[in-house]
Write a protein that binds this DNA or RNA. Structure first.
Lengths: 228, 228
DNA sequence: GTCTATATGTAGATAGAC
DNA sequence: GTCTATCTACATATAGAC
């Protein structure tokens, strides 16, 4: 968290003051509140007033810490996107360390599970973020954010799948990967639907059960789409 | 379109005047413009001012014809939802007329293809509507519209699939149906992504090719998820 | 860094003339 | 049914005191 050391404070060279704890706390509180409200109400539906109020901060502090509403939104998305991408790439590295040619199921699992685990672990901030990602992915207005935050990692996994199926049509691989991602996102956007449609069945499926179903679904679906 | 007849005009009983052609045209122009702008910018992002302007109408005419912004939005979604549901149910009837026990693939096809055909035929109004449906499906604020417009038909198809797989877990069927629907919706929300990711492959997949891939993907995925 | 006050724009809705 | 004019509320952003 880069707290300043006494030695640094004594340096005679004029220097940029380190961010104070309080300032950092305000900035983070704003990011957290924005994450929640953007996820609940969408970009236009969440006002900076409400965000500031939910963060216990002043309206003016949003411009001070995060330039403006648009930059705030981008920072909210980017913050966790980096962590998520890292988790996915770590899972991929681990996989390849054990097996130079991982299975399709293992690849999909490495990509899908970090998201599901974060979203399903009950952390409300990650749950909100999961809905936010779904929003960004579906809205053409934010497609630059998608390109920057999500597409590079997706590209790495698609390249791995291409290596596994060198004879398959590459665009078919890309398309079925998108089907898989959108099925993944549906678990956070359509949770209420799942609950409603499962109600007749009498039981609520647990998140890890859902994750298994998703991976099975996507693997089989992709194999079928690549054959066609 | 319920034009009034001279005979009716001469009736001595006072009656509700039929809607004039011009009024109807204005009302429809507003619906069309709203469909496009809501799809492009979301509910909050599209103002009634812009909608009225795009429709060549006055702002006040929106309240006059459609009560207010929220009712306008619901009417936009409902208008085509009825047509879409009918196409799906017709396809199902046709299917069952030939075969009391249709295949899973045939059932999925009956549900998925009407949407894809409408969205893929190049009609820009239907394309906008397809994006709008994706928006409504993903946004919890509109889940009442989903329940009213889409869930009943989805329920009919899920019931058919349950009949096909009486031994399978019902909630697993519901969940994989949701995966399928969200993969379907991704074709309209992620078209730019498909284009970007397919670019490396050099060719743009045609819509009917995509539809085949989607049906194959969902059928195989669902079978796998039901086994698990 | 924070806060008050305010500038400036735009939102949705409607009253009342035509 | 349409259109002009306007009401009221709320949006984002910033200037300047503390």
């Amino acid at each position: 968290m880069s707290q300043e050391s006494p030695a640094a404070a004594r340096a005679d060279q004029p220097r940029r003051r380190a961010v104070s704890k309080r300032s950092l706390a305000t900035s983070l509180a704003i990011l957290d509140a924005a994450e929640r409200l953007f996820a609940e109400r969408g970009y236009d539906g969440a006002s900076v007033r409400d965000i500031a109020s939910a963060a216990g901060a002043q309206i003016a502090s949003i411009s001070f810490h995060h330039v403006g509403k648009e930059t705030l939104f981008e920072r909210v998305v980017e913050r966790r996107a980096k962590e998520l991408s890292q988790l996915r790439l770590d899972a991929l590295s681990m996989l390849k360390a054990h097996d130079a040619k991982p299975t399709l199921k293992a690849l999909l699992s490495a990509f899908l599970r970090p998201y599901l685990e974060k979203a399903g672990a009950g952390d409300p901030q990650w749950l909100a973020y999961a809905r936010l990602v779904a929003m960004v992915s579906a809205d053409i207005r934010w497609h630059r954010i998608s390109e920057r935050c999500f597409d590079p990692t997706a590209g790495v996994f698609i390249a791995e799948i291409v290596k596994l199926f060198p004879q398959a049509d590459r665009s078919a691989i890309a398309v079925s990967f998108i089907f898989s991602v959108s099925a993944m996102l549906s678990l956070s956007t359509s949770q209420w639907r799942i609950e409603a449609l499962s109600a007749a069945a009498g039981n609520q499926p647990a998140m890890d059960r859902l994750a298994d179903q998703l991976v099975s679904f996507c693997e089989a679906g992709m194999r079928a789409a690549l054959k066609g």
